[in-house]
Design a protein around this nucleic acid. Sequence first.
RNA 1: GCUGGCGUAGCUCAGUUGGUUAGAGCACCAGAUUGUGGAUCUGGGGGUCAUAGGUUCGAGUCCUAUCGCCAGUACCA
Length: 484
Amino acid sequence: MTTEQRIVEPRLLRGFRDYLPAQMNARQKIIATIRQVYERYGFLPLDTPAQEFRATLMGYGEENTKQIFSFKNPEEEDVALRFDLTVPLARVVAQYPDLPLPFRRYQVAPVWRADKPDPGRFREFLQFDLDSVGVSSNAADVEILCGMYDTLRALGIENFRVRFSDRKVLNSLLDYAGIPRDMAHGIFRVLDKLEKVGLDNIAAELTGGRVDVSGDKIPGLGLAKTSVDRIKEFLALPQGKRKHVLAGMASLFKDVPSAAEAVAELDFICTSLDALEIPDDRVTLDLSIARGLDYYTGPVFEAILTDAPEFGSVFGGGRYDGLVERFLGRKIPAVGASIGVDRLFAAMQKLGLVQMVSSTAQVLVTVMEPGRMNDYMKLTRRLRVEGINTELYLGEESGLGKQLQYANRQQIPVAIIMGSDEFANNEVTVKDLLLGATLQDRKKTAKGKERDAWLVLSRKAQVKVPASEVLACVREILARPRPA
RNA sequence: GCUGGCGUAGCUCAGUUGGUUAGAGCACCAGAUUGUGGAUCUGGGGGUCAUAGGUUCGAGUCCUAUCGCCAGUACCA
C-alpha cells in the first residue's frame, strides 16, 4: 500500500468547527469576561457530564428525538449527548437534595444538537448559562435580565437589545382573540416571525397561508378574521418605555381574566428595572416575543445584537417552573438564561468586535548561536520564573530575520537577541517589536547612509542592557502604553 | 426534510457559442539585504477544474447521480 492510498483526508463533520489559537484566545477572553460578571452576582460554578441517560434528556415525549445525538454505550444502555445545560441542572437539583436553595449556578460547557447548521449555528456549541433554582419571586427574573444587560456591556458591545415578555401574555392573547389554547404552538411560531417577515405576511400565515419569495407554499392556520383583527390590535400596541407598553397591554386585556397574572409579573419586573435605572432602550418590554414554546411558564427573555440581527438571539432564557418536577415529583421554581457563546462570537467577529491575538507569549528569546542553547534556556527560564510569558525560539530556521518575522507574525511584543557581541560583554539586546513596527515604513526608502540613519532611529526601539537588567528592561517595554 | 443557486490554487475570483500547455490578485517560499520583522523589486512553488459516470473527434464549459457550501422554507424542549 502506498503512502497516498493510506492518507486519510483531514476534514470536519458538518456543523463542527476547529478553533485555532487566534480565535481561541479571543474566545477565552469572552468567556472570562462573562464568568466575571456572573461571579459578581454570586453565581456558583457547576459542571456535569456531556453524556446523560437518554431518558433524562427526553422530557416531552418523542417529538424532538431527532435533534439529539444518541447511541448505545458499551453496556448497551441508551445514552445521549446533552442538548442544553438546563435539563442536566434540573437533574442535579433533584439528585442532590442537600443542595441549599436557592441554588444559583453558572455553567459553561459544550452542548450538541443534530439539526441543520446555519450561520452562527452549529452542531456542537458552547453555552454559558446562569440560573436560579428555588426562587418563585420575580426578583430572580430581574436579576437574570440585569445579568444579560451587564454581560453584553462588559463584552464591549454597544448596540444590543434585551427583550422580555411573559408566556402568560400570549396565553391571554389567545383568550382575547378567542383561539383555543391547543393552537398556541402554531400561533406563537408565526408571531415569532413578526420582525422577520412583517405584519402582512403574518396575517396571511394566520389565515389562508402564503407563497414566499422562494416559491414555497406556507400553509395557513385558518383563523377567523375576527381573531386575526384582535391579534393585529395586540401587535399594534404602543412601544417605547416599559411601563408605557405594560399600560397599553393592561388596558387592552382589561376584560381578560387570565391577564392579571401576566400584568402583575411584568409590573414587578418593570418597576425593578426602573428602580435599577436599566435603560429603557436596552432592556425593553416586547410583547411579541414567543420563545421556548413548551418549556417556559412565565417571563421569557432574549437578546440580539442590533447591528447583526441576522444571527438571531445570542442570549435567551426564561422561567421554567415545571422542569425539576420531572425528576423530583414536586415543583421547584426556576429561571435562567443562556448565552450561545459560539453564535455570539460569530456575530461579534462579523462586527469586528473581536480582537484576534495569535500568541500568549510576551517575549520571544531568539537563538543566534545554537551551540549556546543552555544560555538561551536559562534566560528564558529566568523570565518565566518572574511571571513573564516567554517563548524560546525552537524553529529549525536559524536566521535572525526569520525569528523576528516569526515574532511579528505571532504578535509577540518583545524579542530578546543574544549573539557573540552580547555574550562577550555579558549584555542582552531587548527589542520592542511594536514600537519598531512603526519605524518599518521608513525602511523602504532608506538606502546607504539613509539606511544608517534609519538603523540609528530604529535603535530607539532596541536597547542593549547588562544581562542583570534584562528583567527590568522587559517590564519597562511591556508597560509602555499601546494604541488599542 | 423540501425548493433553488453555486463548487476552478491556501483565500477571493476570471475563464468567450464546448477547441492548443487553465489564468489573475492576495497569501506562501527564495534572493536583492551573510546580526534585525509588516515596504519595494525580481524570481519560484502550488490545480486529479468537488467526486463518479455519460454525451462528444474534443468537456473547466453540456447531461445524470453523489457529496459539500449558500439562500429561502420547515424545525429549534
